Amino acid sequence: MALTYATSHGHDAARFFGPLVDLYECVYAEPPYEEGPDQVSRFRDRLPGEAARPGFTLVTVTEGSSLVGAAYGWTMSAGTGGPAPTATRPPRSARRRSWPSWNGSSTRTAEVRELARS
């Protein structure tokens, strides 16, 4: 079956919150995360506030009617909410936390979450 990619912004993404929580629960139950109901509940509770952030964008991947992957993030002004700016790109391991703009732009991604299920 073909994969379908879609982009949603802000509160328009709310229609995906239920399937997104289910996907999160499936993905992060596995090692090394081994997250349980408390973490899933925290993820669910934070979604509306994250979707309200300026620049919030959600990209979903569906196969038929099933959500099989997603990534989302938002933008913030450079120099806010993260460590001091550096001239080098952050390591791949930093992709789930905030970091300053590494390319000198006036905005930066504050958070990027990637979820996928095989």
Rank of each mutant, 00 (worst) to 15 (best):
G55W: 05
A110W: 10
F43Q: 03
V61T: 10
A84M: 04
T75P: 00
A51R: 01
V68L: 03
S105C: 07
G79A: 08
P90I: 00
L67H: 06
V61Q: 05
P48T: 11
R97W: 04
R96N: 09
R96F: 11
T57P: 02
R95D: 04
P90F: 00
D45S: 15
T57V: 15
E111T: 09
W99D: 04
A78G: 13
T75H: 10
T60W: 04
P90W: 03
E111Y: 12
R97K: 04
P48D: 09
S98Q: 03
R96Y: 14
S65P: 07
Y72E: 05
N103G: 07
G79M: 05
T109P: 02
A52F: 06
R96E: 10
G55I: 07
A51N: 03
R89L: 10
G104I: 09
E111A: 09
G55Q: 10
S66Q: 12
A52N: 12
T109W: 13
R97I: 14
S101E: 04
T80M: 05
A52D: 15
A78I: 05
G82I: 00
T107P: 00
D45W: 08
S106A: 14
P48E: 07
S41W: 07
S93Q: 08
V68N: 02
L47V: 03
R97F: 07
L58F: 10
Y72W: 15
W102F: 11
S77C: 00
F56Y: 15
P91H: 11
L58W: 08
P54E: 15
P48N: 08
E63T: 06
S41L: 13
T86I: 01
A78R: 15
